[in-house]
Design a binder for these strands. Structure first.
Length: 538
DNA sequence: CTAGGGTTAG
């Protein structure tokens, strides 16, 4: 077929600047008038626009595709790519299947990339494996981009080990490939591995960019690797990446999770902000018990014109709960749905139950559970049970336990909690009942663990852990710290009150000397598993 | 000249 080159080129230029469907259809009419509807570059360009562009139309792309007699690889790629990024990625896989079975055009690197994207999004592990086979058979197994797609696809399907194998077998790895491996580990929760990848990549001269830092920082937040985080902060600063919102947000979150709220604030002040930035600040202050600050940032966010979502409220309510700001918490809880159109989830109810519970308003807490759509979930009852323990309330404690029992959700921690309540009431029979319950039902305890970062290494440990070579020295130091804290007013078993500095009868004035606060944080960290399982003295 | 990698809750 012969086409008029000058006209075809003119139309192609116009097509490149096209940004909406109505205009495209006008150009298309022009194409037909000039007999260019079968010009390969033009028909591909039109199809690609409809399939891929945000202002295109996938149904229309499908319609066009149907009328192509022998679709070439590029046409298949357009339609597969379009569906891979659409709300229904399965369709991309249907087209891929049809391409392999019906078409003479074979898949290329683009086909595999787009198909893998679809597999990743719909979690089609079987298909991913099958595509992997085709990739190897067709000789694309050494392509960096295709392999990066495989790494992501396996990673997103919960197969981090296989992702790692694909990664290790790549003949050459560029920065994007390294970043994909890091974020794969980070998102799968293999934080130590993510950080270790960074050590390997520094030897390879591929450099570091914002993507690298975001993945690594996210892992630092999760394992509390503050020293490492600070090191990454310095790199971000050197590379001029502090005004990158993704990097900034990851830094804010890292500092906040590690308890360095000043550090979080410093980053926050020097960058453009989005919803993530505000949420990280609110949640950061909230989970560390700074309710006033959480409220302050919440209000600032509203002033900045950012609409709060459910996470913002989670941080806010958590802060109110931990600081004992009951009135404020209740007010925000109501405003959630009435003013901001955010539906409270189970965790928001959990905050409110916890808030009333800590404040000693156990009947109110019970009422909230009754009014919530989550009476069939053990979580709220368990919060009520631990509130009952704080306030030594046998009646409500037993109600909570009865509900847990009816749900078949009783665990060892629950029994310990109720037993502690009985102990406060000198109810020997009650204690014995709980002891028996644990024994008879064979309810297992999962040991809690904690961690501490020494230079760049994060050490994990459990209760009574003696596995560390320096364990003798460690326990000696712990003894020393505990002694100092006790001298300053720390009471064993009451650390959660000291930690939050308010809302308890023992420390009702809320005035806690700063060194006690620091020690309490250390003790809280070191005894975290003990406190959470409530095993002390059991 | 159509590819691949990013943050908050749990």
């Amino acid at each position: 077929m012969v086409f008029e080159t000058s006209k075809a080129n003119a139309i192609l230029t116009i097509l490149q600047g096209c940004n909406n469907l109505t205009r495209l259809k006008k150009i298309q009419a022009h194409v037909i008038v000039n007999g260019l509807q079968n010009h390969p570059a033009i028909s591909n360009s039109i199809l690609n626009f409809c399939a891929v562009s945000i202002s295109g139309s996938l149904p229309y792309a499908q319609h066009l595709f149907k009328h192509i007699q022998n679709p070439q690889t590029q046409a298949w790629n357009s339609i597969i790519r379009g569906f891979a990024q659409s709300p229904s990625p399965v369709q991309a896989i249907f087209y891929y299947n049809r391409m392999l079975s019906d078409s003479v055009s074979g898949p290329d690197t683009f086909t595999f990339s787009f198909t893998l994207k679809a597999c990743e999004r719909i979690k089609a592990l079987k298909k991913c494996e099958e595509v992997h086979g085709s990739i190897i058979r067709t000789g694309y197994g050494r392509d960096v981009v295709v392999c990066t797609g495989l790494v992501r696809c396996y990673g997103g399907n919960g197969c981090a080990e296989i992702a790692r194998m694909v990664f290790d077998n790549m003949p050459e790895k560029d920065l994007v490939a390294w970043n994909a491996m890091i974020s794969c580990y980070s998102q799968a929760g293999y934080h130590q591995e993510a950080l270790r990848i960074y050590d390997n990549m520094t030897n390879e001269n591929v450099g570091v960019d914002g993507f690298t830092l975001v993945g690594l920082l996210s892992s630092c937040s999760h394992v509390g690797a503050l020293n490492m985080g600070v090191k990454l902060h310095r790199i971000a600063s050197e590379k001029g990446l502090l005004r990158n919102v993704f990097v900034g947000n990851a830094l804010i979150d890292m500092y906040a999770k590690c308890g360095n709220l000043d550090g979080a604030l410093e980053v926050f002040n020097g960058m453009p902000r989005d919803m993530f930035s505000w949420n990280s600040m609110i949640v950061g202050f909230g989970v560390h018990g700074f309710g006033d600050e959480a409220i302050y940032f919440f209000n600032q966010m509203l002033e900045a014109g950012v609409r709060p979502n459910s996470i913002a409220f989670l941080g806010l309510l958590c802060g109110c709960s931990h600081q004992g700001l009951v009135e404020e918490g209740v007010e925000f809880f109501h405003q959630m749905s009435s003013k901001f159109n955010v539906k409270p989830g189970i965790k928001h109810f959990g905050c409110i139950v916890d808030m009333y519970g800590r404040a000693g308003k156990l009947e109110k807490a019970l009422e909230i559970i009754g009014d919530s759509p989550w009476q069939d979930d053990p979580v709220l009852w368990r919060i009520l049970l631990s509130s009952s323990k704080i306030h030594k309330n046998v009646v409500i404690g037993e109600i909570a336990m009865r509900n847990l029992s009816q749900l078949g959700a009783v665990n060892a921690g629950d029994c310990v909690l109720l037993a502690t309540i009985y102990a406060g009431d000198n109810d020997e029979q009650g204690i014995a009942r709980m002891r028996k319950l644990i024994k008879n039902q064979g309810i297992k305890t999962t040991p809690g663990w904690s961690w501490i970062e020494v230079s760049d290494q994060v050490h994990r440990f459990v209760v009574d852990d003696k596995s560390h070579p320096d364990s003798g020295m460690i326990y000696q130091k712990l003894e020393e710290v505990t002694h100092k804290a006790t001298m300053a007013g720390y009471v064993k078993g009451k650390s959660q009150f000291i930690f939050h500095g308010s809302c308890s009868e023992e420390h009702s004035d809320g005035a806690v000397p700063i060194d006690v606060f620091r020690s309490a944080i250390m003790i809280k960290t070191m005894f975290k598993p003990v406190l959470e399982n409530g095993i002390v003295g059991w």
